[in-house]
Amino acid sequence: MISNVIVAQSTEVEKANFYKKTYAHVAFAILAFIGVETVLLKIVPAELIYMMFVQKYAWLLIIGVFWLASFLASKWSLSQSRATQYFGLGFYVVLEAMIFLPLIYIAILQSGGQVIFQAATLTTAMFAGISAVAFTSKRDFSFLRNIIVIGGFIALGLIVGGMLFGFNLGLWFSVGMVILASASILYQTSKLKDSYTTNQYVGASLQLFASIMLLFWYILSILNRRS
Results as ranks from 00 to 15, higher is better:
41 L>A: 01
222 I>A: 06
70 S>Y: 07
38 T>F: 12
2 I>V: 15
166 G>F: 14
132 A>G: 00
194 D>R: 11
10 S>I: 15
152 G>N: 12
200 Q>F: 00
53 F>E: 12
53 F>M: 05
161 G>K: 04
196 Y>A: 02
200 Q>N: 05
90 G>Q: 06
36 V>K: 12
184 S>Q: 07
190 S>C: 03
97 A>V: 03
27 A>T: 01
181 A>C: 09
227 S>I: 02
5 V>H: 13
68 L>M: 06
90 G>M: 05
51 M>K: 11
147 I>V: 02
49 I>M: 12
7 V>R: 04
18 F>T: 08
61 L>I: 15
226 R>S: 08
18 F>N: 02
75 K>R: 01
222 I>T: 06
184 S>V: 02
171 L>N: 06
118 Q>F: 14
46 A>T: 10
71 F>W: 15
217 W>G: 06
172 W>S: 10
20 K>W: 11
14 E>Q: 10
47 E>K: 13
208 L>E: 01
91 F>T: 09
59 W>D: 12
74 S>E: 13
219 I>M: 04
43 I>F: 12
78 L>H: 09
27 A>N: 04
32 A>F: 14
18 F>Q: 02
7 V>L: 07
175 V>Q: 01
12 E>K: 09
190 S>E: 07
164 L>V: 09
76 W>Y: 11
85 Q>L: 00
152 G>L: 03
79 S>N: 08
39 V>E: 03
136 T>W: 07
155 A>C: 12
208 L>D: 01
201 Y>F: 07
9 Q>N: 13
216 F>M: 07
215 L>A: 01
85 Q>K: 08
112 G>C: 00
182 S>D: 08
20 K>L: 12
76 W>G: 10
33 F>H: 03
226 R>E: 13
30 I>H: 06
214 L>T: 02
199 N>R: 13
194 D>Y: 13
159 I>V: 15
41 L>F: 06
222 I>G: 00
107 A>Q: 09
222 I>D: 10
53 F>A: 04
181 A>Q: 00
208 L>M: 02
141 F>T: 05
107 A>M: 04
87 F>P: 09
143 F>S: 09
80 Q>Y: 05
36 V>Q: 14
45 P>T: 11
76 W>T: 10
13 V>S: 15
96 E>V: 05
111 S>C: 06
82 R>D: 11
176 G>A: 01
125 A>V: 13
75 K>E: 00
195 S>V: 10
123 T>I: 13
53 F>H: 14
40 L>N: 01
111 S>P: 06
49 I>H: 11
140 D>W: 08
118 Q>R: 14
204 A>D: 06
115 V>Q: 05
196 Y>N: 06
175 V>M: 07
5 V>C: 07
